[in-house]
Each structure stands twice: as C-alpha cells, then as structure tokens.
Nucleic acid binder design. Structure first.
Lengths: 157, 157
DNA sequence: GTTCGGGTACTCGGATAGAAGGTGTCCGAGTGAATGAGG
DNA sequence: CCTCATTCACTCGGACACCTTCTATCCGAGTACCCGAAC
C-alpha cells in the first residue's frame, strides 16, 4: 500500500496556492521551481486536481492554477483522493464463493465480515483526512509565511 | 494506494486456520484448493506471515501451517502488515527543504504539518484494524462453520 | 488620444516511452512418517 | 511381536520471468496580453 510520490507534491502545492491573494495564479513551472520538481509531470498531476474540482486552471500569459474554492472548504482528503482515486485499497473479490470451500449464495447474503472490517478502517482513514482543511494548515504556519511564499513563487529576489 | 490481492487471501486463510483444532495444520496446497488460488504464490505469501510470527510452519508429511498464537491475540492489523509491510503509505521526502522556496533547517525543527496529518490518518487506520482479533471474526460466524471448514480443508467429502 | 487588428509568447492538456513492484511459476533442501526386514 | 534402519513422499523455502501501474518526458492546441498602425 503506497501512495504516489506526487501526493506530497500536490499537498504542498495546494498549500502554496492557498497562500496566494484571491484571484492570483501560479503556473506549473513556478510551482515546480519552488519545490524543485519535474515540471511536466507536476503539470500532469495538477490536471487531476482540476478534474476533481479542487483547482481551476487558466491558460495564456499570466495564467496558471488557483484554488477553485475557499481554502476552508478544501480538505486533505479531497486532494489525496484526487491524486490517488477514491477506491478502497482493499478490494473484496469474494474468494469465499470460490474453490472447494465455496459458500452457497444464500450464505453470502450479508457481506464478508473481513471486507466490512477493512472498509471500516478505510473509512476511519478518510474521516481523519477529511477533518483537516487547507485553511487549518495555513493557520498553523507562522504569519510571515504567506508573503514569503508569494515572493518566492513569483521569482522575485 | 492499493493493497496486494494476496491480502484478502491471507485474511481468509488465517480465519480458516483459526477454525482448526489446536495442533492441527493445513498445507498451502489445501488452502489453495479451498479458495481456488495459485498454490505456489499463496505459499510464498504464507511465508511472510511466518516471518512476522503470526503463523508457524511445519515441514514434512502431515505438516503445514498453524496459528503461532491464540486467535484472540492475532489482530487483523498484524496480518495486513505482515503482507504489505509496516511502512506508512505517505512518505515525507521533505520537499519543503528543496527548490527556490526551501525553508531553512532551523524552520524545519518541527516536522511538516502535512506529514503529521497524514501520519495521524494512518494511525487511525491502524487502530481500527488492531481493534479486531481473529477470535472476534470467528465468533461472528455461524456455529456450524468451523466443523464444515475443517471437513472441506482436509478434502473429506 | 483612442480604437482596432495582428502577432507573439506563454499557458494548459493529452499522447507517448521507461522503471519499479506485485503477480505468477518453477525447482531444490529438509523432514517426518510409513515400510520392510531382522531379532 | 517388537525394534530399527531405510526409503519415500510430502512439506516449506528461496530464486527466476511477466505484467500492470507509477514516473517521467515530449509536443500540440488554445488564449490573453502586447505592440503597432490607423482613425
């Protein structure tokens, strides 16, 4: 069970975008320089956040990415699931219905207990991530962080 | 983020082994037939549970696998982590210290907040899985299940 | 001075190769039990 | 009938290919801005 490395990238990028002034954008190239990441691949992953409705993209000069909604309404879960998908890591393939020990369809009316327990754990994970919004992450940073982030993102010395 | 398919196999196999009479064993071939799984690969994964101390293996005729401890002391988490490893799915590579926006080592004295939140979610997942033991899984089955499982595992008609 | 048109440079977006880890398979080393002969 | 050495079949354990997914890269389509000329 491994999350893509790009998960970290996008969590940090979203945090950076949340520190911009409303209406401002940052391009994929700027974000890539800010964190020293492969620009093309980062752009590809940012598109996933656009498709998920977390970011909105503008083309052309002075274009780039910005948050599609207020930072207080974007949770860590939404970002992670935009990158990695929403499916559960445990996929029940109903092996209890196969082989010599196969259960009758009648005995499988209620779902597999093991699958239920795994789903509960996944739900606990999701709830934990959904409990934190980007706004709370920003609030935990020192007050000097946002201006500095803006400065360094735009490339100003 | 995807768990190996073999996770389901081993959760079910451990459940089956927990239904044996104390001291009895089941071979990898028997378990594979019971669930219609590739026997060689299942054996390879069962070894992982042996290395983790969840199962114990006996070679030679009438040998096989059995629980290394009482079912009440084996949690779902121990089985899952034996298969998939104990590392967190989110790996913080400290990209905040790289690139144009790199933070000074002094500002990185306390760990990255995002990494902390991701670790909290993983811990919630682990706690949820650790809360259920194999004994509780068995207790939820109908009383007729264990004898039937034993019969079908050994190949008796 | 204002307005309009074209050019340009910059942006995202999707289609295309390479690498890592899970999946599946194979064969060898070791062991405990069953067997047969001998006492 | 009991004992013991031998054989054997069965078990696990580790080493070797294949395939899906993540990683990385490239180039094309579209667009907002900037500049120049005309009014």
């Amino acid at each position: 069970m491994k999350l893509p490395v790009s998960t970290e990238w996008l969590l940090h990028c979203a945090t950076s975008l949340a520190q911009l002034k409303p209406g401002d954008t940052a391009s994929a190239a700027q974000l890539a320089q800010y964190y020293d990441l492969p620009a093309a691949y980062l752009a590809k992953q940012l598109q996933a956040l656009v498709r998920a409705g977390v970011l909105s993209a503008t083309t052309g000069p002075r274009g780039g990415f910005r948050l599609a909604r207020p930072a207080s309404e974007i949770t860590l879960l939404q970002i992670v699931e935009a990158v990695d998908g929403t499916s559960s890591p445990y996929e029940c393939r109903e092996i209890r219905q196969q082989g010599r020990g196969a259960l009758s369809p009648d005995e499988c009316r209620n779902p597999c207990i093991l699958a239920e327990k795994m789903a509960e754990a996944h739900e606990a994970w999701r709830l934990s991530l959904a409990a934190t919004s980007l706004a709370e992450i920003i609030a935990a940073l020192p007050p000097s962080a946002p201006p500095r982030t803006r400065r360094r993102l735009t490339g100003a010395p």
